[in-house]
């Protein structure tokens, strides 16, 4: 079997977002980057799939210069090499642009039997890039997968729908989007981290890719981006011993009409 390519996204850690309580303006400049949480499970799923099939795992991302750290992190999780579409437009890309870039990079990589994506990204949680890639490459897509196995050139998967589990199969090459529950995402050990820094990274620029006019322009305009005010009372009951705190809480909940 040929390569398993896992796509991942380098996102801003939401815990570092700063929101001005008065204007609701969002400050992302202090936010550290991280591999999108769900993509960590996807990287491990790809590693397991390629190990069982005796093939190689390749990590692929579309990101700006910021994503450099991401590549080392991703490579410490098992993939043998990484490809990086490096363009600043990644910071403002929508699903249309991202899928165009990744699909074009996958075509350039050429040899693949399985593309693995997380079900959604931790920042946008838009669930669209995986199925879009399948449509662009004209290969089957199986989304929201919680179990999968490869036998020869056929993929057997269990999808999780709202009320049912569905057994689905398709010939490879195919795209799967995986749920985090497919497998844990182990934290890489020191040795793996050191090795990750030495693995090869191939960088693509947009002009290296075979793209059509318009493929690099967003399809939706962002009209506004602001913080949501969680209008909670934030009353901290911190006075007295445990019993007094509980009494105060019960009184408050009665007053709220929820007891």
């Amino acid at each position: 079997m040929s390569n398993v390519i896992v796509c991942f996204k380098w996102v801003k850690a939401e815990d570092d977002l700063r929101i001005d309580p008065a204007t609701l303006a969002v400050d992302l400049s202090k936010a550290k980057g991280k591999i999108s949480d769900y993509d960590r499970n996807a990287i491990e799923a790809a590693r397991i799939a390629s190990e069982s099939a005796g093939s190689e795992t390749i990590a692929l991302t579309f990101g700006s210069n910021d994503a450099k750290t991401a590549l080392k992190d991703a490579l410490s999780r098992g993939p043998k090499q990484a490809f990086w579409v490096n363009d600043v437009s990644a910071e403002n890309a929508d699903g249309f642009v991202t899928a165009n870039m990744l699909a074009a990079a996958i075509r350039k990589i050429g040899s693949y039997s399985l593309i693995v994506c997380g079900e959604g990204a931790a920042d946008t949680y838009a669930h669209q890039v995986g199925p879009r890639i399948g449509a662009l490459l004209d290969i089957p897509v199986i989304s929201f997968v919680k179990e999968m196995r490869i036998e020869g050139s056929r993929l057997y998967a269990v999808r999780k729908l709202e009320d049912s589990l569905e057994q689905v199969e398709a010939d490879l090459p195919a795209v799967v989007t995986v749920l985090p529950e497919i497998n844990p995402a182990p934290i890489p050990g020191l040795k793996a981290v050191l090795e990750g820094g030495k693995k090869p990274v191939t960088e693509f620029k947009i002009q290296d890719l075979d793209l059509e006019d318009g493929d690099t322009s967003r399809k939706t305009d962002v009209v506004s981006f602001k913080g949501c005010s969680m209008s909670r009372k934030k009353i901290l009951i911190n006075e007295g011993d445990a019993k007094e705190k509980v009494t105060a809480l019960v009184a408050a909940l009665k007053k709220e009409g929820v007891l």
Binding site: G95, A99, T124, Q128, P131, R132, F144
Partner: peptide, 23 residues
């Protein structure tokens, strides 16, 4: 925005070179 709906919406959007606003 069910499991099937998300999948179909994204594939339709890609085939039509259209934008998709999710959820």
């Amino acid at each position: 925005a069910t499991v099937r709906g998300r999948d179909i919406a994204a594939q339709v959007a890609a085939k039509m070179k259209a934008g998709l606003i999710s959820e």
